[in-house]
Design a protein around this nucleic acid. Structure first.
Lengths: 234, 234
DNA sequence: TTTCGCTGTGAACATTTTGTGATAACTTTT
DNA sequence: AAAAGTTATCACAAAATGTTCACAGCGAAA
């Protein structure tokens, strides 16, 4: 099946970039606009399969964009709102968004919503239907994402929330290196303001629970000068 | 038997999401629309096996959608009405809806109605007829859902309504973690506005009645940072 | 009405997780 | 080999999360 096209209308480049990365993960092609007017034009011209729309935008308000888009097409729309109060406004105006996400949001939440929309609107892609088998396996390592269960050599290991998220993210993309900054953005949220070396500690604790030999990690490898990655040769 | 397709026409994404999740539990595939017009189009194009239709909708009123759909097909329709709209309820029925549910409703009520519709309309699915074997057993624990009877080591235990519902829900899906928010939505209803920590108290009371050792729960486990789950290793 | 059990909440307490600083260990560069 | 830059480790306090318990409001049953 061909890739789905997603239009991101968002004025914060930081966020646009982040969403862009994760949409690619979901096998989506993405295009973006930094203001409402351009966004609307692109929505008309490009006929995307999904629109991610921030509420507060320069040039044309997100709600207005939503209404105008809806007047001519039924492309699913996910709205991003800064405060929960704004949701009421969206709902009240009955603009017809298919879902909304309040900032700050976690990437897991975002991708889950996107997948849900695609599932519901019938644009099911092979790669998206991974929801079924949420189990990742490697030599001596078993991860059941749904149940949050991790086994190391048949033995149950319990991980803290952050440890679990780190493991799942990296194990889902073996070989892909993440910088500490990537990890902070993805797992802690793009608004986290703390030190990057916080990640080190978490990786360290995760390794302590998973690795048979701390001196020579088997699963979570260090990419010197870059960050960390899950071993792809397993 | 193949999956049943359910179309949700509802403008509140929160509710759409919730229904979506529980329809999946019932082995149904769901598609959705956030406004009446799109909803009607999908009803025609996708030929769903069941339509969940909110009465108040943007673009095209739920009643109108119902009438138009009924003009061309006999797909079962369940209407959702807000409490105050007593009048609309009658109207909805005259229009030919097969059932109606007034908001706010509990998820148990919703799934029961959906099952009933499928049963009535002869779309009986293996997975839906789980009503038959309503007995769950684990080491030292026996639950007869039908009779609302719970035995702990052969001894009868009586549970309050909420305790019983919590137990049944979780024991029906061992290993699956539920967040406090999930539990509130499913058991208390999506409109419950109270504190999440209310769940803690109920879990606590339930444990007090079930667990042989409170310090080390055997049945109801805590998933730190997430919520609770029923022990799958029994 | 009175009684009684169920519920939601607040508060005190217990536990786990997490961010950070300090320091050691390791790589690369000079 | 020393210096500079990165990563690993570890202990600790603060923050987040869970547990327990008492109590008052409520509604149903007696």
């Amino acid at each position: 099946m061909e890739k789905k096209k997603v239009l991101i209308i968002e004025d914060d480049p930081e966020i646009t970039n982040l969403l862009d990365i994760h949409l690619k993960d979901l096998q989506c092609e993405s295009i973006s606009a930094a203001d409402g007017k351009t966004g609307y034009d692109l929505a008309v011209a490009e006929k995307p399969d999904l629109i991610i729309l921030d509420i507060s935008l320069p040039e044309m308000d997100g709600i207005e964009v939503c209404q105008k888009v809806r007047a001519s097409q039924k492309t699913p729309i996910i709205m991003l709102t800064a405060k929960s109060e704004e949701i009421d406004r969206v709902l009240g105006l009955e603009v017809g968004a298919d879902d909304y996400i309040t900032k700050p949001f976690s990437i897991r939440e975002f991708t889950a919503r996107v997948k849900a929309i695609f599932r519901r609107t019938k644009f099911i892609q092979e790669s998206l239907s991974e929801d079924a088998s949420q189990i990742i396996e490697f030599e001596g390592l078993y991860i059941d994402i749904e149940k949050r269960k991790v086994l190391k050599e048949e033995e149950r290991v319990d991980l803290s929330p952050k440890e679990f998220e780190l493991l799942v993210l990296m194990a889902s993309h073996p070989g892909k290196s993440y910088t500490r900054s990537d990890l902070l953005k993805i797992i802690w949220g793009y608004d986290f303001d703390g030190y990057e070396h916080t990640v080190n500690s978490h990786i360290n604790r995760l390794r302590a629970k998973l690795e048979p030999d701390m001196a020579d990690p088997k699963y979570i490898l260090t990419t010197w000068g870059v960050g960390y990655k899950f071993n792809e040769e397993l």
